[in-house]
Amino acid sequence: MSFTYSLPFENEKLLDGILFELKRRKEYELSQLLRGSRISIEEGGYSYYAGGGRHNAHAAYVTLYVNPMNIDILEDDTTKKLLTSICDTLIPAEVGFDVKSVSFSIDLTKDYELEDDLIIDLEKQSDRISGKILAKILPQDVKEKGYYMSEIYTYLYAVENSLRLFIEDVFKTKYGEDYFEKVTVPSALKRTLEQRINDAESKKWLSVRGESKLFYLDFKDLGTLISNNWDVFKDAFPSQEFILSKINEMADCRNLIAHNSLVNETERNVIKTYYNVILKQISQFLDS
């Protein structure tokens, strides 16, 4: 068999494949540890002379450049063996690479926030708790569901804040910098907004939501704002039902997450679909 000795995709695509395969195998914790990492592949000599392999195939060595906070956790023989197997499976046979090992190195191209007192304290607390007790208060399925839910929250966070910034951009274009005094805001929502701002000012230890009043509004409040100012947004969306129904469904899912309830697979797929649909819709409007 003749080999190409060249990947048919960029290295980053291999990393995407690794993360996808880890999630498919429910290795959520490992996929989280590798998020944001980089990958390189070094081609070696003939695979046969490096521990055995296919005739004329070359040995390949994969290096993952990761957050320094994660490297000690990743430096595990079981983890390396799993990732080596996944890489070997994902690289097409006709390439002619037999993956011999996966190793980890610190990614020096990024600025990482190193350990702070909170992280150190958490590690100390974990050290004090016996494995038997830890298994009761933090069982594996809870950890896996936590990583699963964190991915869903990321989609919600992105689309919610993108929608806020979009609404602000549309209002500023229409009314100028002091737009909030000119848009239609229901009296009940005005009272809620004033209460949230007052609460934020009285609790200085909490992080500031932002200078814009829009950041004090909940997901469903954004839908209310669009609905009450539809003449401004009617060219951005096909209909009120199109955008409001999606906002309301995603807001319901957000409430589940906020109350530590599990979002099922169907709801997860709805969120991902709406995420793509809404961002595509508003980006097309801004480009037009």
Rank of each mutant, 00 (worst) to 15 (best):
H58M: 06
I71T: 05
I73P: 07
N70I: 00
A60H: 02
P68H: 08
N67F: 13
G53F: 08
I71A: 03
L83N: 03
T84Q: 04
D76P: 01
R54D: 02
T78S: 14
E75A: 00
D88Q: 00
G52R: 11
I86F: 13
D72N: 12
G52F: 06
L64N: 02
A50H: 15
V62Y: 01
I86N: 03
E75Q: 01
N70E: 05
Y46V: 03
N67E: 09
I73Q: 09
C87A: 11
I86M: 07
T89H: 10
N70V: 05
P68C: 02
A60L: 06
D77H: 11
M69R: 14
H55C: 07
V66R: 05
G45M: 01
T89R: 09
G45F: 08
L82R: 10
D76H: 12
T63N: 06
I86L: 10
D76F: 04
K80T: 02
D77W: 08
G53V: 09
H55W: 15
G51C: 03
N56Y: 15
G51A: 01
C87P: 05
I73C: 05
C87I: 02
I86Y: 08
A59Q: 03
Y65M: 09
L83M: 10
V62N: 00
D72L: 13
C87H: 04
T84K: 14
L82V: 13
T84G: 03
G52I: 04
N67M: 08
D76Y: 02
T89K: 11
G51D: 01
D88M: 00
G52K: 10
N70M: 00
I73R: 12
G44Q: 06
D72H: 14
K81V: 10
Y61A: 11
H58P: 03
